[in-house]
Amino acid sequence: MIGLTILGAVLALASLSAAVLALLARSTLVAVLAAGLVSLFASVMFLLLAAPDVAMTEAAIGSGLTTFLFIFVMGRIRREGTQ
């Protein structure tokens, strides 16, 4: 029980610092990757909160597919910006 709480506190700290990084980062790519990291830490927190279904969904969708959607759109925009 205590171990779970400590792990939860570490994860909370990690996801909050990733979120701050996502807001403060100068490059948009770093911000997108940090947002994916927030999702990944949140999915481990879902696992601690006894929600394995939600954890799987968040890991696959929130941190996987969302990040790639951003990267695809950024690639499109950068290619057009250089033309």
């Binding site: 279904d53 954890a55 969904t57 696959a60 996987g64 597919l65």
Partner: peptide, 17 residues
């Protein structure tokens, strides 16, 4: 087990990715 259509669908889509 944990999992189901939404998670599996996302995994299939990541193969496409």
């Amino acid at each position: 087990t944990p999992g189901g259509g939404f998670q599996g669908g996302a995994i299939v889509a990541s193969a496409m990715l």
